[in-house]
Design a binder for these strands. Sequence first.
DNA 1: GCAAAAGTGTTCCCTTTACACCCATGT
DNA 2: ACATGGGTGTAAAGGGAACACTTTTGC
Lengths: 273, 273
Amino acid sequence: MPPYDPSAFPPFAVTVDLVVLTVRRHALCTLVVRRGEAPYQGRWALPGGFVRADEDLGAAAARELVEETGLCAHDPAAPPPVPSNGAHLEQLATYGAPDRDPRMRVVSVAHLALAPDLPAPRAGGDANSARWAPVEELLGEDMIAGTVVSADGAEAGDDPEGTGKSGGPEALAFDHARILADGVERARSKIEYSSLATAFCPPEFTVGELRRVYEAVWGVSLDPRNFHRKVTGTPGFLVPAGGTTTRQGGRPAQLFRAGGATLLNPPMLRPEV
Amino acid sequence: MPPYDPSAFPPFAVTVDLVVLTVRRHALCTLVVRRGEAPYQGRWALPGGFVRADEDLGAAAARELVEETGLCAHDPAAPPPVPSNGAHLEQLATYGAPDRDPRMRVVSVAHLALAPDLPAPRAGGDANSARWAPVEELLGEDMIAGTVVSADGAEAGDDPEGTGKSGGPEALAFDHARILADGVERARSKIEYSSLATAFCPPEFTVGELRRVYEAVWGVSLDPRNFHRKVTGTPGFLVPAGGTTTRQGGRPAQLFRAGGATLLNPPMLRPEV
DNA sequence: GCAAAAGTGTTCCCTTTACACCCATGT
DNA sequence: ACATGGGTGTAAAGGGAACACTTTTGC
């Protein structure tokens, strides 16, 4: 890179933050890590890190995703966000209020990742410094503005399952509650008109499992019969995989794979209330 | 801002770029400015500039918008993007490929602005260094990748109206063709389910004028009868303004103002093809 | 009168919705 | 046998597409 007068523009730190969503036990959950350093020490935060000097933004997000979860996402530069063996990853929005980090001027390019249910988070080897937290627990109305509900950095306790509520609600660090809210809203609206909900499922899944994804993300219940007709009736949305079955209770269900169609038209209608 | 070790992270320049869209003469147009400096000198580019040291991203975009067009937009931090006396402004996406600017590492937070038809662009006093260009002219398939169609920086000639095609197609500087394409796509999809199309209209407008906005942005023609029923039948979408009329051809039409409803449900359906 | 744009009414068709009903497994 | 979830059939209600028709201006 040729030399350039650095006094011509103010220098910024650029980071990527990740909203990693998954569905665990019928609840929409997000990955949060415990902060070990100065500002907001001990508080939960979204995973993220600095963009390297010669790294693209999407590449930085994909690298952070691997570091935090081991998930391998497609390069988001490729236009159709088809899930591979890993997760869906897309850019969400950029947050750059001058006072969002007290240490320095940081602009954070937030990304949204959607992943199937994973065994347990591993954050740089430190097991209990990362967990899947139900978003409902993190976004309880008054927490979005950044207000601290439990004023101190109260411990959430040890939770081997990774989804427990032992710690009670606690505001996320920085403006991460706002970022999380924006990511959840993006996911909620995008599954209406796209095949994105399949990114929450394993490679092969049943119609019922896909329906439970919609129900968890939207927080509603859907008619199983009409849902089945809708998703199987849209050409290219689902393709039968081997035709075999699996079980989760009653009659064995047909297994499907996500089809080539990425757009769902007409869209899935989200019920009111 | 407290001191911090600047060697802990690579420094970036952060800019805002603007996709300013309007509808002129039944065509969707965008504001482009002539580059006077080193890389891509003489080529057209999207307006933009550096974010200042203590400036929010949205504030920087609003400032650039005023500098380039005189338009006064609402602070995009306010959640509902209601158009005021000025334009609609929202964040679009962030572009940060390591080689997108040969001089240095630049991350650009692109914003999308929607404005009613304006008399003529004024770019920092230099009149013929800015123009409204039809997007169709700038996004002719092969131009999105950044390829130069007319290899040199051919002059577009003097064009007092600001919309002329005298220069013929020429690729935009940097990755601005990609940014413009993303902004156009955002506008095209967002007018489906929101009242955003009214941002292209003056404060008071007729149903026919609003329909011609949809037709220009989508590049289709819509049934005037069904369109009228659709927009007037959605409660809160349009409110009668004074009830007076205006003319553009036949029978006088009722004047409307944008109503409080920002979401259009069920959405306006975009015809195929 | 004629052209042009603004509105209104009506019919057809497709989708959603709600729900009755049957199918295939585990206990 | 019974509970549980998977899947099909069907009729009523709602909304969009297409188009006939009336209204009100300018020329």
